[in-house]
Amino acid sequence: MPEYPAKLQEYLDDFSFISTRDERVDYLIAIADEFEPVSAAIATKPYDEGHRVVGCESEAFVWAIERPDHTLDFHFDVLNPQGLSAMAMCAILDQSCSGAPLEQVAAIDGEVVFTFFGRDISMGKGRGLTELVNAVVYSAKQGLRH
């Protein structure tokens, strides 16, 4: 298995020990509470549609800003005020992937969504969250090409 960003691996390890739905939900809500939407210095509404995560019903947007060391800072917003799962996923990706080696970010498999949210998540929700991960991975792959 390819090496993932250290913080992401930490989250994955944490979630692998979760045994009940309530524990999972409580942890995800706590993470969602840490979500910080993109600052006005990066983007203002209405956002450029090019940053929209296609397939995410919670209307998530993602921006990737290059750092001097050529890693990326990721910024997100979720327009649906009830898009709590999307906010949790954005917080995980922000904390895990911003500043992480691009090779590690580019190696992330969308399947991580199901480690965090469980297999009984709805098809639509699973797809939307996976597309969030894919958007970050895509940016990392683009960064590696430059």
């Binding site: 939900v25 009830q82 898009g83 709590l84 799962s85 949790a88 709805s122 639509g124 929700k125």
Partner: peptide
């Protein structure tokens, strides 16, 4: 649909 909403 979203399992996080009720507990939140």
């Amino acid at each position: 649909e979203d399992p996080l909403l009720y507990p939140s």
